[in-house]
Amino acid sequence: MAREKAAELLTVRQVIEELGGISRRTFYRWRELHIAPRCIRLPNGELRVRRDVLNDWLAERAEGTVS
């Protein structure tokens, strides 16, 4: 079950909603700056973000954490 959750693919809309409703433009700007979570480009050109990648990306940005 944990593996099944890790393989979940999120749409850009789902990601920006989870990030507090940032604008689509902000997300794509972050991609240009290489600071957005890693995306997967599907054969139809749409982007997806793996759930585990988003969770790791958020954890890396948590304030007050010790590396």
Score class of each variant (00 low, 15 high):
Glu4Ile: 09
Glu4Gly: 11
Lys5Leu: 10
Ala6Thr: 05
Ala7Gly: 10
Glu8Val: 15
Glu8Gly: 13
Glu8Asp: 14
Glu8Cys: 15
Leu9Asp: 08
Leu9Met: 14
Leu10Tyr: 04
Leu10Asp: 00
Thr11Tyr: 10
Thr11His: 11
Thr11Trp: 06
Thr11Asn: 09
Thr11Glu: 05
Val12Cys: 02
Val12Phe: 02
Val12Ile: 08
Val12Leu: 06
Val12Ser: 07
Val12Met: 08
Gln14Val: 12
Gln14Cys: 03
Val15Gly: 00
Ile16Gln: 04
Glu17Ala: 13
Glu17Arg: 09
Glu17Lys: 05
Glu17Pro: 00
Glu18Met: 11
Leu19Tyr: 01
Leu19Cys: 10
Gly20Thr: 09
Gly20Glu: 09
Gly21Asp: 03
Ile22Pro: 04
Ile22Trp: 00
Ile22Lys: 01
Ser23Trp: 11
Ser23Phe: 05
Ser23Gly: 11
Arg24Trp: 14
Arg24Cys: 12
Arg24Asp: 13
Arg25Thr: 15
Arg25Gly: 12
Arg25Trp: 14
Thr26Leu: 10
Thr26Phe: 03
Thr26Glu: 05
Thr26Asp: 03
Phe27Trp: 01
Phe27Cys: 05
Tyr28Ala: 08
Tyr28Cys: 03
Arg29Gly: 11
Arg29Pro: 06
Arg29Met: 09
Arg29Glu: 07
Trp30Ile: 05
Arg31Ile: 06
Glu32Gly: 05
Glu32Val: 01
Glu32Gln: 07
Glu32Ile: 01
Glu32Ala: 06
Glu32Lys: 04
Leu33Tyr: 13
Leu33Lys: 15
Leu33Pro: 11
Leu33Asp: 09
Leu33His: 14
His34Leu: 13
His34Arg: 14
His34Thr: 12
His34Phe: 04
Ile35Lys: 11
Ile35Ser: 12
Ala36Trp: 00
Ala36Met: 02
Ala36Leu: 03
Pro37Glu: 04
Arg38Ile: 03
Arg38Ser: 14
Cys39Glu: 07
Cys39Met: 02
Cys39Gly: 01
